[in-house]
């Protein structure tokens, strides 16, 4: 309840506009952590269709699937981020995003939560929060109302 009040307060504060420009992030769960990617980077959220594994593919590639006739390569975000692997549950989703090459890539995540709006003051840049040696995938740490959100740069995740 306290949380709720707090986030209501921060939403109100944002509406008043005293916290600068805000960015919208889609929050999702993966291996017990919460992550966020900028909403504008996501084309679509899908329930996973049957995925065909591709022999000899890079390790982080789950396989390929068809999205209304479009062939999409699906990456396992767990493998990209080197976190513990676990089979998908029925809450598993695929986030569709575009790589730097323009190719549409699917990103397998455990569960999609909701959209959060973060002001610049609520984002810690990766370098200052985590030190110099951070993967290029991580944009920073988001701290909306006491939560801990790892913000990912979708284009570099799906291009890497």
């Amino acid at each position: 309840m306290a949380n709720l009040t707090q986030s209501t307060a921060s939403r109100l504060a944002r509406r008043i506009g005293d916290r600068g420009p805000v960015r919208e992030f889609l929050m999702f769960a993966l291996a017990g952590e919460l992550y966020g990617v900028e909403l504008t980077r996501i084309k679509e959220i899908l329930s996973p269709p049957p995925i065909t594994t591709v022999p000899r593919a890079p390790r982080n590639v789950v396989g390929v699937c068809s999205v209304r006739g479009l062939l999409v390569t699906v990456l396992d975000l767990r493998r990209t981020l080197h976190v513990e692997e676990r089979p998908l549950t029925r809450r598993g989703r695929i986030l569709l995003g575009a790589a730097e090459s323009g190719e549409v890539i699917g990103l397998l995540v455990d569960e999609v939560r909701h959209v959060v709006r973060l002001a610049a003051t609520e984002i810690e840049p990766a370098a200052s929060a985590l030190g110099g040696d951070v993967s290029e995938f991580v944009l920073g740490i988001g701290r909306p109302a006491g939560e801990f959100l790892i913000l990912l740069d979708l284009p570099s995740v799906v291009s890497g």
Partner: peptide
């Protein structure tokens, strides 16, 4: 349909 660029290194 061609495989995406991210799989272009996959032979066969």
């Amino acid at each position: 349909k061609p495989l995406g660029k991210s799989l272009s290194g996959v032979r066969g």
